[in-house]
Amino acid sequence: MRMAQTLGVRFSYTEDGAFALDGVSISVERGEFVAVIGRNGSGKSTMARHLNALLRPTAGTVLIEGRDTADDAETWEIRRAAGMVFQNPDNQLVATIVEDDAAFGPENLGVPPEEIRARVDKALADVGMTEHAKSAPHRLSGGQKQRVAIAGVLAMKPDCVILDEPTAMLDPVGREDVMATAERLNRDDGITIILITHDMDEAARAGRVIVMDSGRVVMDAPPREVFSRADELARYGLGVPQAAECAQALRALGFEADPGILGGAELAEAVSKLRGSGSLDADRDNQSDI
């Protein structure tokens, strides 16, 4: 069964206002790692909230593991199955110590005490926060707080974790922490990840990238394909990963560089080939421009 599916979802925050979602149909399979990108106000958060039954569609249907979010009886099971991590690490932790916060979800679900204990210990270990189990949240760094938030979701034994710009307020170390944690959960535990991000380098690490604009899905393809269409992305107010940008600049100067280049390693390889080809020596002036 599909992890998540939306069928022609439209949604408006106001009675007569514009549609924040204007006919969104996507489908996410179990175990996928999907990135969602799009400029501010394109409807990413609104869509994420639909997948967690925090919002319900004005028109259309949202199914999480086949359960309809419009059905009140399914709300809790949907929220358990599709956990959500928000942007601001400070405003989603409830308890005064880390392990109590991780216990909040399973406590709400009525899980027996011994099992909550076991789940909390495992969840904190999974995000590498075991040694901070007794710390107060406000003593942690931003990246650590986000990992605690992820642990709080993991303790509910979700099948899918939706992260709404979890790295936006973090420093580079915190960002990498959160990204590595999400990737590990996806790879080792088969948890479906839906990552909303404004960082193209993060999006490039996903298995599939969904691009949103004005409440619609405008692209939905593997990162290599999405980021090779730089002109189209620019129309949606989006850039490409740094390495892809570099490769593009190289191509503009007449060098040979694959349009599929996404990561630093691929770029380095392409550049080292250039050196061997000798074309670099012939065009020394241009090289310094790069």
């Binding site: 925090l54 929220r79 405003n91 989603q92 409830v94 909040f104 709400n108 679900l109 709080g152 509910m156």
Partner: peptide, 8 residues
């Protein structure tokens, strides 16, 4: 919102 998302 975050509490609601965690089934509170």
């Amino acid at each position: 919102t975050a509490m609601e998302a965690r089934c509170y």
